[in-house]
Amino acid sequence: MRVLEIIEDPTGLFGAHSAIVDADGISKEVRLDLVDHPPEPGDYLIVHAGFAVNTLSEHEALRNLQLMREMAEGLDGGGGPGA
């Protein structure tokens, strides 16, 4: 889900409190209590039961795809640890 807006904690004590995300065209609010690193607008969040649990790494997503394509084309050497 793509972050549209970050909402700060109304008391000012806890920093980023929640985010408005775009979930297939629907806007909804998700809590940010559990994320290691506060997201920014434009980031993609993995959301579980109303809580963001991680920010998707766009760099790793592209790397995952690249490795898949190489594997599918038989260009990955056929073994060894992947990422």
């Binding site: 209590d33 559990l34 994320v35 290691d36 993995i46 649990v53 991680n54 998707l56 790494s57 766009e58 790793e60 997503a61 790397r63 995952n64 990422a83």
Partner: peptide
């Protein structure tokens, strides 16, 4: 690896 790391989510 686009969402999972070796160390996981320490805050959670």
């Amino acid at each position: 690896s686009r969402v999972v790391t070796e160390e996981g989510n320490k805050q959670a």
